[in-house]
Computed example of a mutant assay.
Amino acid sequence: MALGPAARLPGVLVLLPPSETKRAGGDGPPLHLAALSHPELDPVRKALVDELVGLADDVPACRAALGLSERQLDEIERNAALWTSPTAPAITRYTGVLYDALDVGSMRGAAAGRARERLAVGSALFGLLHADDPIPAYRLSAGSELPAGGTLAVRWKPVLEPVLARLASERLVVDLRSGAYAQLARVPGAVTVTVLAARPDGSRSLVSHHNKSHKGGLARLLVSSRAEPADAAAVARIARRAGHVVERSENHLDLVIPA
């Protein structure tokens, strides 16, 4: 039975986008879908993994489907070995600007424990991952068009949206995913965040690339804090106490930075 907002379990869930770049290697056993959270997603996961492994045999088709250059053949090799390569926890597999700012590896003690409990990643290949879910390095983006047909959103929405809706009924979800990943499945009632640059003349504009760094910093605040935010207003208070300028409209927050 779904829980109402007043009965939510403690602990915010921060939903991150994945990154195109992945850390190589790992010391975990090969991919075993039963080791991942949310087993109801496994049929789509298996279909996509099998499709990527098979597609890797046709390099031109694989490059076209995944948008790869001639210098990215190693990404195809990663996909060819999805069932056999070593795994690592999802939160350490992803790299890049957002994950550098999040910097989970520097957290210690209770803060590290809270982070691992509160972090999740929206994945084009695995749908939804929690911090410790063991995954191999792979290449698949939300906008990829695989030869089997149908967008990834068409494949994921029917199975992923019910999972996200259930989580949102139990915990406050702060959805930091980028647009393409947010389109894979909606999260009802989630707190969303936009990063805006404010110019001296008062005008504002969306921050593009560097929004990842600011969202990573916000995620670090939320997942390491002792506070248990229950709504968007509480999330805004945590950010403001850390010195951020935040404006709220219902469940949406604007994080305002100097241009």
Rank of each mutant, 00 (worst) to 15 (best):
S141V: 05
A165Y: 00
S169Y: 00
R118L: 03
R166T: 00
V163H: 03
Q183R: 15
A124V: 04
E117D: 15
S178P: 04
E117S: 14
G149P: 12
H130A: 13
V121T: 14
L140E: 10
L172Q: 10
A180G: 09
R171I: 03
E170V: 01
A180L: 10
D133Y: 01
D132V: 10
Q183C: 12
L119N: 11
R116N: 04
R166Q: 08
R177T: 02
S123Q: 05
R171T: 06
R186F: 00
V173D: 00
I135K: 07
Y138C: 03
L167G: 08
D132Y: 01
E145A: 15
V154D: 15
L140A: 13
F126T: 06
R114N: 03
Q183K: 15
R114I: 04
Q183Y: 00
D132E: 15
H130S: 14
G122A: 14
E170D: 13
L146F: 04
G122Q: 15
L164Q: 13
A131G: 11
V121A: 09
L129M: 11
P147I: 06
S144M: 05
P134K: 10
V174F: 02
A185W: 07
L160N: 06
G122K: 07
A142S: 09
L184A: 05
E161L: 07
A153Y: 06
G150D: 05
A182I: 06
L128R: 08
R118W: 00
A137S: 15
G127P: 08
A185E: 00
G127Q: 11
V173K: 00
R114W: 03
P158R: 12
R118D: 07
Y138P: 02
D133W: 04
R114Y: 01
H130Q: 15
L164Y: 03
A137M: 11
V159K: 13
L128C: 10
P134C: 10
R166N: 11
L128Y: 03
P162A: 05
S178R: 14
T151C: 10
L184T: 01
W156H: 10
G122E: 09
P147A: 11
V159G: 06
D133N: 06
R116G: 08
L172G: 12
A131V: 02
E170F: 01
L164S: 12
L128E: 11
F126H: 14
A165D: 11
A115P: 03
D132S: 12
L167W: 00
V121D: 05
L152T: 02
P147Q: 08
S169K: 05
L119M: 06
D133A: 14
S141K: 15
A182M: 12
A180N: 12
V154W: 08
E170A: 14
L184S: 09
E145Q: 15
G179V: 14
E170I: 01
S144P: 05
G179T: 12
R166I: 00
A165F: 00
V159P: 04
G143I: 01
P162I: 01
G122M: 14
A131R: 02
R186S: 14
V121G: 13
G127A: 13
R171Q: 09
V159M: 13
R114C: 07
L176R: 13
P136L: 11
V159L: 14
L140C: 12
A165Q: 07
A120E: 03
